[in-house]
């Protein structure tokens, strides 16, 4: 049972990490396409028409694909003042309440995002200018939201360790933190 729990946790982390790496790739993509667009316009007088559409899609990808890992590593911005004050007496209750809010929110958005995605997929919707097929990009939303929901649910059910809020010294890197500067 303990082994299964460990594999489950590792599996989630690997998935979240893989998504975050894709998000980083999208970030690189944004820089690449902007610089290419500027260069083409300035030096070859042939502006790229897809820059705006593609950057917008990639930006969505950065946000949504980054979300599961941020959640897994508990790096969200939060209001801690009340929870801290009640920590001594109601620590468990507050933690459960927090996980419940997370489960409700991500579950609700997940439910809404499925018909939303289906709509774009069935109709083959495209971006207005670049005429890029939208659904492969839109798929990141339900996938990421779904994984994030699973993370919250697993925490609520005790399948994952409780949130542990990190310190700045543990700057997230791809591998364990290294000290520099």
């Amino acid at each position: 049972m303990r082994a299964a729990r460990k594999y489950f946790a590792q599996g989630l982390e690997v998935l979240a990490l893989a998504m975050a790496l894709l998000a980083s790739l999208a970030m690189v993509g944004i820089v690449a396409i902007i610089v290419t667009g500027v260069t083409m316009r300035r030096f070859f007088n042939t502006p790229l028409h897809i820059t705006e559409d593609v950057v917008g899609l990639m930006l969505s990808a950065v946000l949504f694909l980054g979300l599961p890992l941020v959640t897994f590593r508990s790096q969200h911005v939060r209001v801690s003042i009340v929870a801290e004050a009640l920590k001594a007496r109601f620590d468990t209750a507050m933690r459960i309440a927090a996980m419940l809010v997370g489960v409700l929110f991500f579950g609700w958005i997940l439910l809404e995002s499925i018909p939303w995605f289906e709509f774009a997929w069935k109709r083959g919707l495209k971006t207005e200018t670049a005429r890029l097929l939208l659904y492969p990009w839109m798929a990141v939303l339900p996938l990421s939201i779904g994984l994030t929901w699973v993370i919250y649910l697993a925490r609520l059910l005790g399948l994952l360790d409780a949130e542990r809020h990190g310190k700045l010294e543990e700057l997230p890197t791809i591998a364990p933190a290294q000290k520099d500067g």
Binding site: V77, R78, V79, I81, V82, M94, A97, L100, L104, F106
Partner: peptide, 13 residues
Amino acid sequence: ASTGVALGAALGL
């Protein structure tokens, strides 16, 4: 929000 959950989830919910 006062549960200490991610602020985005509290606002969104």
